[in-house]
Each structure stands twice: as structure tokens, then as C-alpha cells.
Design a protein around this nucleic acid. Structure first.
Lengths: 142, 142
DNA sequence: CCCTTTAGTTGTCATTTGATAACAAAAACA
DNA sequence: TGTTTTTGTTATCAAATGACAACTAAAGGG
């Protein structure tokens, strides 16, 4: 069954991606943040501004726990919350300047490790990789 | 800088893979297992037989904690440990019959969701996806 | 205007996970 | 043979995370 073969590849591939990204982002998170807090901050970084509910949905955690963790993040000065003037129940969560600095540093480290990983690759291969990333993102991981 | 663009894609892609696989495997884990225990069991399933040290390395957890969690898994009857006759310090960890059954069921559920996700794709597209998975796994996530 | 829904907060408790010290036994090595 | 290294265990403690109840305030709908 061809279907099954593709699924096998998918499973192996997902496992590999998890493994490698864990490896690459290992020890990147600031000492001041717990792993969960780092993940939340990473999510905020790429999706800002976000609401608490969006964080809650995407991170698959309950509102009370999300509220607590985001509160800690803003207490640590890495994100800010401003009430949405159109709907004063909602709040827009963004990185603060300190948060931007922190995440820039983190991404920098990750970038270095990523480049080490793909060092010595030809321009043609690079192109192929780029296309493969695009393809999969559109057709499978959308 | 082209380098940076590729890195951006890599980050976005990794995030998407995490998100989608979390979504797909959500609620799949047996009620009897904690998330960590499920991940360990998944690792054992695809790499068996493994030693404790291998689990410890791959899951990036300390030996004491690994020992504890694997002990719980065998107490729950989902894996077995047999002492390596060639080196009696080591032990080969495998899924038990119950563990196999549990993981089969889990993979079944994941497979269903995966197929829903790629439903309505042409044979040519399927081929492309397969090739992209292979390419990335060999050149980036190895 | 009342009622319901949505968005978020606070507090509390249980469970999970991480960290560390102290240990045992087999293997490797000198 | 004695020492060191590898592999794993047990116990204990602290921190992180998850679950839930009770609450506030704003918005929406009749």
C-alpha cells in the first residue's frame, strides 16, 4: 500500500525534524525563561500581536495557565500587553524591546547552528532545499 | 543575504511541522501515559531495541530520570527489558505485546488524520511530497 | 435593560518533570 | 589485582506544568 509508505515517511520525517530542532535550539533559551515560556515567547515573536486566546489555542493550554505564564513573561519585561480599543476585553501581546533583543539573540544562535548543519552545500542543492520546504509547507504542513 | 532567507524558511517550516504534528497526535496518547512517557514509548517503538543510555541521549534527559520513567513504562506493562548477555550492564528495551498494540492503535489514529490532511491530492503531487521528504531528511534533518 | 457569551484573572492543588547525591555492579584497563 | 569507567538504580527535593473553581468586565443579542 503506497499510502502507508508515505505515512511511514511522514512519521520518520516529523521525528527527525523534532529531534534536529530540539538539538539546534537546545540551551538557546535565556536562563530566565522556562522552556514553556520560551516557546510562548517564540510564538509571540513570529505572530505578534496576538491575544491571550490565540496563545491559548496555539499552545494548546488552558486560559488560566496561559494567563499565568504570559503574566510572568510581562513581569520579566519581555512582552507588553495593550488593551484593544475596539474590544476592551482583548489585549494585543507583543515583544518589548528587551524581548526583541532576547529573541534576536536566540535566533542568531539558531541561525549559526543551522548554517553549520548545511555547510558545504552547493547553490543547486540550496535551491532544491528551498523548493522542498515550500512544497511541504503548502501541501502538508499548512 | 540568501542565507538568511533560507534560514527564515527553515524556522517557519520547523514551527509548522511542530504545530501540525502536535495537532495530529493530540489526544492520541493513552490515558495511562504522561506526555513524556508517550514520547519515550514512541521512540522505543521506532528504534527498538534500545538501551537506557540511548533513550537518555535522544530524549535529552538525565539517566536517573530516564531510569525512573522507563521503570514506570515497564511497570505499566508496555515495555520489557532484557539484560544484554554480552554486557550485563546494558539492557535491551523493547515494546511488549501490549505496548505494540497500544502504539499500533496510536499510529492508526495518526495515519487517519494524516490522510485526511492530504486527501484529494494527485498521484503526481504525492510523488513530489515523497521526494521532498526524502531530500530534506537527507540534507537538513539527518 | 436583562441575559448570555466572550475574554481574561486569581487562587489553589495535584501531577509531572528536572536536578542532584549516593550508590551498585559489570566491564575495561593498567 | 586494583582502579577507573560505563551503565544503571534509588531516593529526595524543587520547579514547572496542568486542572479546576470562582470570579470580573466587556460585548452582543433579544
Amino acid at each position: 500500500m503506497d499510502n502507508n509508505q508515505l505515512f511511514q515517511k511522514f512519521v520518520a520525517f516529523s521525528a527527525a525534524v523534532h529531534q534536529i530542532t530540539n538539538d539546534i535550539t537546545k540551551d538557546v533559551k535565556s536562563e530566565a525563561l522556562t522552556p514553556l515560556q520560551y516557546k510562548i515567547l517564540e510564538y509571540i515573536a513570529v505572530s505578534q500581536p496576538v491575544t491571550l486566546s490565540e496563545v491559548s489555542d496555539c499552545m494548546q493550554m488552558s486560559m488560566p495557565n496561559t494567563s499565568r505564564e504570559v503574566k510572568k513573561l510581562s513581569e520579566k519585561g519581555v512582552c507588553t500587553r495593550i488593551t484593544d480599543p475596539d474590544d476592551r476585553r482583548k489585549q494585543g501581546i507583543k515583544l518589548s524591546a528587551a524581548g526583541e533583543a532576547l529573541m534576536n539573540e536566540a535566533f542568531q544562535q539558531i541561525a549559526v547552528r543551522f548554517e553549520q548543519r548545511i555547510a558545504g552545500i552547493t547553490a543547486a542543492e540550496r535551491k532544491e532545499i528551498e523548493q522542498a520546504l515550500d512544497l511541504l509547507q503548502h501541501k502538508v504542513f499548512y
